Each structure stands twice: as structure tokens, then as C-alpha cells.
Amino acid sequence: MILPIVAYGDPVLKQEGEEIEKDYEGLEQLIENMWETMYNARGVGLAAPQIGKSIRLFIVDASPFADDAAEGEPDPKAEGLEGFKKVFINPIIEEEGEEWAFEEGCLSIPTVREDVYRKEKITITYFDEDFNFHEETYDGYAARIIQHEYDHIDGILFTDHLSILKKRLLNKKLTNIAKGQVNIDYRMRFPKQKRRK
């Protein structure tokens, strides 16, 4: 089932998610719905807070980056992304290395894209959808996508990484998104949209 994606300005996007147990009610269906919702919106990642659930769960499918690299010049940051599709539950992340800039967007903040600096390498421990434990290290786009989604379960948006000046310049656009005054082609829930009587 395709769920509405929560738009910028909703308090759930600023809450730190809670860890979940293996017997979390409806987990399998929730994950299935998240995949369907993410693909419908043509995203590469989706975190549970973006569908209104304040829990430590996100999904990633980075294969579009591998497809883009295959079509153009080879990109070392896209190596290993073919079939890179994972569920991350209760993750813990460690970041290291130099920071690099990359233009990020977010399904909860449509039409806004800005350069964000992040560390180049991460080590992450997490449980998959079957609650098997993993410890893995990533760099390049894989690390970037995971860091972006991990921020969501900590109540952080990519716009929080921007300078005060940049945020000020985006303020009207962000306010309009919260009000639903944005042109999108996937389901969203807007926190400040006026209800029709």
C-alpha cells in the first residue's frame, strides 16, 4: 500500500525515533508498504518518520545511482551499488574521513536540492528485516544515502546541515511545502495545509 509521505514542518520529522523489537506489530507489512511508497515517489531511501512513524527503521535502494553511472562516465563513488537494497533496523553509525559535498534532496522536502557536506566513510551496525545482526562499512554514494536516512531517525533533515544564510533563502519555499503549495506527483501529508470545508 502506498502511504502518504510526511512533508517538511511535521513534528514527527524532528523527533528521535525509538528502537523496535523483533515482534513489532505489522513490521513485515510496514516494510513492504515503505518499499512501495518509496518506489512510487522514485526515491532511493525512505525512513519510518517520513511516513509518520517515529521508530528507528529505514530502507535504501541505491541501484539508480549504479544505473546512472553505467549510462555515463564510470563513477568510483557508485561502485558496488548494483542491487544495493537493504532494510536497516535500530542502526548505529560511525563516520570517518574527509567531508565531501553532494547535492541532496528529500521526499519530505520536494523541489529543494542543496549541497550537503558529509564524511566519506561509515561503519554501521544494524538488524535486517529478519532481525539478523550486521556490521558493514561503506563509502561513496552508499555511505551518503545511509547517512541521509540515518539523520531522519535522529530527527535531522538535510536542511539542518545548511548555513543560516542558505536556510533563510529557502524559508519561503519550505513554508510553502509545509502548506502543500508544491507541485508533486506522489501522495503527501502536509502539516499546515488548510482543510477544505
Rank of each mutant, 00 (worst) to 15 (best):
G52V: 12
S54I: 10
R56L: 05
R56I: 10
L57P: 00
L57E: 10
L57I: 11
L57T: 11
F58P: 10
F58K: 10
D61V: 02
S63F: 05
P64M: 12
F65S: 00
A66I: 01
A66C: 04
D68E: 12
A69L: 06
A78H: 07
A78D: 12
E79D: 10
G80E: 06
E82P: 04
F84I: 05
F84G: 07
F84C: 00
K85Q: 13
K86I: 04
V87E: 12
F88G: 03
F88T: 09
I89R: 10
E94D: 15
E94F: 12
E96F: 05
E96K: 15
E98R: 13
E99C: 03
E99M: 07
W100M: 02
A101N: 04
G105W: 08
S108L: 07
I109W: 14
T111P: 01
T111I: 09
V112Q: 11
V112L: 11
V112H: 11
R113P: 01
R118V: 06
K119T: 02
K119A: 01
K119P: 00
K119Q: 12
K121W: 02
I122Q: 05
I122R: 03
T123P: 01
Y126D: 04
Y126C: 04
E129D: 14
E129C: 00
D130C: 00
D130Q: 06
H134D: 06
H134Q: 03
E135T: 14
Y138T: 05
Y141G: 04
A142R: 06
R144W: 10
I146T: 08
D151R: 10
H152W: 07
H152M: 02
I156P: 03
I156F: 13
I156A: 09
F158V: 06
T159I: 14
